[in-house]
Design a protein around this nucleic acid. Structure first.
Lengths: 178, 178
DNA sequence: CGGAATTGTAACTATAATTGTTACAGACTG
DNA sequence: CAGTCTGTAACAATTATAGTTACAATTCCG
C-alpha cells in the first residue's frame, strides 16, 4: 500500500490516548502528524462515523476517543478506513475465453481472503492501549536524552500564538506540542 | 493495495503452469489477462530477474516457468514484485517535538512487521501448482457449461492472424486462447 | 447577544503509483 | 534475409492519496 492512511489514523488515536480525555484540536493533531489540519479532520470524520472518536464543534471543541484505548483494536481502525483488502484483483476482468482467465478471479479471491484473515487476526490482537504502552519506554529514553541536550532540542519550535490563559492548549499534551 | 500487480503476476504464472512447458508469447498472455502486451512483458522481466520465468527473444520465442509450478510459492511472487509491505508509514516523518510523534514510527514499524510476517506465512504455503489444482474443478464445470451453449460461446473471438502451420499457437493453450 | 474559535465539508490542485500506448533496437528462427 | 518476438524507453492516461483554500454551522464566553 502506498498510502499512509492507516499509519496516520493509528498515530491520531494513539495521540488521543496519550492525552487522556482532553479534547485535541485538529491543528494540534496536524502538528504532531506533520500535515494539514483538514487532512486530519477528514480522517477524524471517518473515525467518528466508525464510532472510534467523538468530536465537538465550536470554541473549546476538539476530538477525543469514544472508548477507552484498551477497547479500540487496530482492526477497528483498519475497518473504519474501509480498506478493500491487502491486494486487489484485476482492474479489468480477464478474458472469459481463456480457461485460466475465466476462473482465476475466484481462485485468487480465496487466496486474498486468506491473506486478509491473517492480517485481521494480527490487527485484532493489538489495541491502542498496547501502543501507548509500547511507546512509553521509548519516550522516557527520549526525555532522558533531551534533558542532556536541552539547548539543542528546545527552542526549535516556531513561535506559537498561544495566549497564556488556561486553555486546553495549556495542558499536558498541549504543552508537549507547543 | 489499489494495485493489481500481484493478481496479474499470479495469473501469468498460473497460465504458464497450465500450458506446461510450451512457451507463451506476451500477446497471448495479454489476451488472457485482458491488457496490453507491454504491460505483460514488463512484468515478465521482473519475474525473470527473480528467477521465476525464462524468456527467449526472437521468432518462436516466448516465456515459460523457470521451475516446476510446485516450486514457486506466492511468496516468491510477492517478493519478485518488491512490495514494500502491506501498509506504509507516514509519508513525511511526524513532529520530533511531540512525545508521540517522535516514537510512533518505531512502534508502528513493529506492528507492520508483524502484519507482513503473517501475510508472508500465508503466501509461502501456496504454490502455483496449488492454484492450478484449485482451478481445475472450476474449469471442468465451465467446459461442461460451454458445451451446452457452444453457439453462444464460440465464434466471439476476434479473427486471429494465425497461420495454419503447426506453431506454438496451435497447441493446447494456444487453441484455448485463440 | 456578538465575537472568537473549531469542526464539517466542498471544491480544487498537487503528487505519486500504476496502467496503457507507441515505437524501435536487438535477438532468434528458418 | 525476412519475419517474429522480447526488452526497453518514453510518454500519456488513470486512479488514489495528500494538501490547500474557503466558508457555513456550531459552540463557548464575556
Amino acid at each position: 500500500m502506498t498510502n499512509s492512511r492507516f499509519a496516520v489514523a493509528v498515530h491520531v488515536l494513539t495521540l488521543m490516548a496519550w492525552s487522556d480525555d482532553e479534547p485535541l484540536k485538529s491543528e494540534q493533531v496536524a502538528e504532531s502528524v506533520n500535515t494539514n489540519p483538514v487532512v486530519i479532520r477528514r480522517m477524524l470524520c471517518e473515525l467518528a462515523q466508525a464510532g472510534l472518536v467523538v468530536s465537538q464543534t465550536g470554541a473549546m471543541g476538539g476530538s477525543r476517543l469514544a472508548r477507552k484505548p484498551g477497547a479500540i483494536t487496530l482492526l477497528d481502525v483498519y475497518r473504519a478506513l474501509e480498506f478493500r483488502g491487502v491486494f486487489s484483483l484485476h482492474r479489468q476482468p480477464p478474458s472469459r475465453r481463456c480457461p485460466v482467465g475465466v476462473n482465476i478471479e475466484t481462485v485468487l479471491g480465496n487466496v486474498l481472503d486468506e491473506v486478509d484473515s491473517a492480517v485481521e487476526n494480527v490487527l485484532e490482537a493489538i489495541t491502542i492501549r498496547d501502543l501507548v504502552k509500547r511507546l512509553k519506554p521509548c519516550v522516557s529514553v527520549e526525555v532522558a536524552a533531551r534533558n542532556g541536550t536541552r539547548k539543542h532540542l528546545n527552542g526549535q519550535g516556531q513561535a506559537r500564538l498561544v495566549t497564556e490563559k488556561v486553555t486546553a492548549s495549556n495542558t499536558k499534551l498541549g504543552r508537549a506540542l507547543s
